[in-house]
Amino acid sequence: MQLSETAYAKINLALHVRRRREDGYHELETLFAFVDAGDRINARSAPQDELRVVGEFSGQLTDPLNNIVAKALSLLPRPDGLSVLLEKNLPVAAGLGGGSADAGAIFRLVRDAFGLPDDWHSRAAKLGADVPACVESEACIGRGTGTELEPVENDLAGTAVLLVNPRLPLSTGPVFANWEGVDRGPLTTGPASKIAREGRNDLVEPAIALCPPVAEVLGELRGGPADLVRMSGSGATCFALYSSHDVMLNAAETLALRRPDWWQLRGRLR
């Protein structure tokens, strides 16, 4: 049995932080979207689960046995083991839910091969707040810590998108800890395009305080022909949406000449 999946890059088209909870987490409202590219996972039947990591950012995963993919495998009962090859194309600690996307892809692999247990959502949530959304990898609203999912009218599917990261990791915890605690209000209602256009990312200022190049990335993207520019998640990756794929490619190539040291991912929203 040979299986393969793309672990689609997650972006937050809007991310509103409403309050700090007594359990230490934050109450969120976010519009999740997914790019049609990301990490790649290949798997085959094996006597027991095993994981190998390759790819540009494989060196950032220093403990494969503690990797979220290994944890996901341990949570999903199956009659056979899986030998998994993870091609790590997404930067780590980048606001793209890379690890969560990998776990979500594992859930889809297991679902297609063996089926998932009825409580798969709660199992996914144990791995991280973004994981339940990453299992389906379709645009949706996330509430609570991000695990309470609601459907959204996805009128942005197919939109050209460019992701840019200054190749600097930015851990989620310190960014949330730097949030100033001001509730600036909920997401608006309507289709994804309206929610994104009228939304914001409440973590951008604390992220810039910890990683000033985020402001440079946002400035470069805003100086081009993008329709919408924003930071994703807790950073440091930022994204830009464009009117067409050709406009996006031209902007990406121009930026690559200006900043060849920055990482890019070009694609379309799912």
Rank of each mutant, 00 (worst) to 15 (best):
V92F: 08
A252P: 07
D227C: 12
D261Y: 03
D130I: 06
P77V: 00
S122C: 11
R44E: 02
V131I: 11
V92H: 04
D130K: 06
C140Q: 13
E5M: 06
A207S: 06
L203Y: 11
L61P: 14
R167W: 00
L187R: 05
D118M: 09
G181D: 10
M1K: 10
P64A: 04
D39N: 05
L162C: 03
P174H: 12
D112M: 05
P47T: 08
A157F: 02
V164R: 01
H245D: 11
N178M: 15
A240V: 00
V229D: 08
D102H: 13
P47L: 06
L249F: 07
F34N: 12
R111K: 14
K194G: 10
A177S: 13
A139T: 09
V161L: 08
F176V: 13
F57R: 03
T172H: 10
N165S: 03
P174T: 10
L210D: 06
V35D: 08
R184L: 14
S4H: 15
W120F: 09
Q2C: 09
L116Y: 06
V131L: 10
E153M: 11
V229Y: 02
L13H: 01
R230M: 14
S171Q: 14
L116P: 08
H245Q: 15
S193R: 11
P166I: 01
E150S: 15
A124H: 03
R18S: 03
G144H: 05
A256F: 06
K10M: 09
T6I: 15
R222Y: 13
A256W: 04
S193Y: 07
I141V: 15
L210Q: 09
F107L: 08
G233D: 04
S137N: 14
R18D: 04
G24K: 07
Q2I: 15
I68M: 03
A256T: 10
P174F: 12
T147F: 12
Y8E: 10
L51R: 13
H26S: 05
V69C: 09
A70N: 14
S244T: 01
R20D: 00
E198M: 09
R230C: 04
S193F: 06
Q2S: 14
L13Y: 02
R200L: 13
H121M: 12
A236T: 06
E138Y: 09
A215P: 01
A94W: 02
L109A: 01
A94G: 01
V54D: 11
G128K: 03
C238L: 11
Y8T: 07
S193W: 03
L218S: 04
E136C: 14
G97C: 04
P47G: 02
V53W: 02
G95S: 08
E198Y: 03
V204E: 11
L15F: 02
A37T: 02
R40D: 07
L86K: 00
A157D: 08
A37I: 00
G146C: 03
V54I: 11
A9K: 13
V214R: 05
G24L: 06
R197Q: 14
L86W: 07
L31C: 06
P47E: 05
